[in-house]
């Protein structure tokens, strides 16, 4: 399977497009999806639909059931987008709790993080959902109500403004997790608050509970251009989402659990983003927390965000 996507870029896209054409001719005859009958039940076989319907919550599944669910996810992506994706469920590493620090003196408001995130995490292109929102603020205030969410000048940074990127804070005491009536969202041992998209009932109570407006809902089936799909996906992360469920930033779980950087950090041209293991005393993020002036957004609410802001 393709274990690529971020950098192999154009070359891979071309190869995949070639593959897609062949796929069209072979009428879904490729690989795992070979047994698909004519479209019924939304293009799936009855057994497939049955399997989706009675999928258990992730944490309740046995290894065998998880593997079956993962291959159903792969077949679903092939059906819906004609793309062969790789979906795994890499577990958390021992003695790792992830944290993030953003330097607001260096952030220039380019929004490269936002766009990298959209691509990396297979966000619906039509819905314009973005996990990261960069707020343009007047120097001298941190009043969110005065922030500009949709700033669009010819060039950034604008004189007299500074930029505050906001995304899921991966709270250590997450109010969204408490709110969920069906335990479809929880905090993993490495500190990432995840969502089981196949378990969420779409009540959106977590969205009411989140003080950071980090959660987004799929009001319709998200539309993804097949050629832009990131095929390296994680069960609790960036796999293509169904309609009617909530999603949010997951610290690029598909990358970070394998030692990689989140896409937003990799994309940041100013080096304003520092991601790392809070339990490692030699990590850069620990250095920042111990030596810089840091603050957290809405710290007074007591949700213990694991995303800090700092200044030089």
């Amino acid at each position: 399977m393709s274990n690529d996507s971020q950098k192999a870029g154009d070359k891979f896209d071309q190869a995949r497009r070639g593959f897609l054409e062949k796929l069209g001719k072979a009428a879904a005859g490729a690989g795992a999806a070979s047994a698909l009958p004519a479209p019924a039940w939304g293009g799936a076989s009855f057994l497939e639909a049955f399997g989706d319907m009675f999928n258990k919550q992730y944490k309740k599944m046995t290894r065998k059931e998880i593997d079956a669910a993962l291959s159903r996810i792969r077949r679903r992506a092939l059906r819906q987008y004609g793309v062969e994706i790789d979906c795994d469920d890499t577990p958390p590493q021992e003695n790792v709790v992830f944290g993030y620090a953003i330097n607001i003196s260096t952030c220039q408001g380019y929004r490269d993080c936002v766009h990298a995130c959209v691509k990396e995490n297979n966000l619906g292109r039509d819905s314009q959902v973005e996990y990261i929102r960069v707020l343009e603020m007047d120097q001298g205030t941190r009043n969110l109500e005065e922030a500009d969410h949709y700033y669009d000048p010819d060039t950034v940074p604008v004189e007299g403004k500074y930029y505050l990127p906001v995304q899921c804070m991966q709270c250590d005491d997450p109010p969204c997790v408490k709110a969920c009536p069906v335990e479809a969202t929880w905090m993993e041992p490495d500190g990432i608050v995840v969502i089981d998209y196949d378990w969420c009932i779409g009540c959106r109570y977590c969205m009411a509970a989140c003080p950071y407006w980090a959660r987004h809902f799929n009001w319709s089936q998200p539309k993804l251009p097949p050629e832009e799909i990131n095929t390296k996906t994680h069960y609790l992360g960036n796999r293509p989402r169904p309609r009617g469920v909530v999603e949010k930033c997951h610290f690029c779980i598909q990358r970070t659990r394998e030692g990689g950087q989140p896409a937003c950090m990799e994309a940041c041209p100013t080096g304003a983003r520092v991601f790392g293991n809070l339990l490692d005393p030699d990590s850069e993020i620990r250095y920042i927390l111990e030596n810089k002036t840091v603050f957290r957004l809405k710290e007074d609410l007591g949700t213990e965000p694991k995303l800090w802001y700092y200044t030089d």
Binding site: C180, W199, G202, N218
Partner: peptide, 29 residues
Amino acid sequence: VIVDLGRPDRLWHMIPYIGRFNFPGSLLA
């Protein structure tokens, strides 16, 4: 409440034992 759900087909997730019911944590529960 039911017409407000994004996934009414998953309502059974709320049934204790068969599904997972976040009680007493969730006020919605």
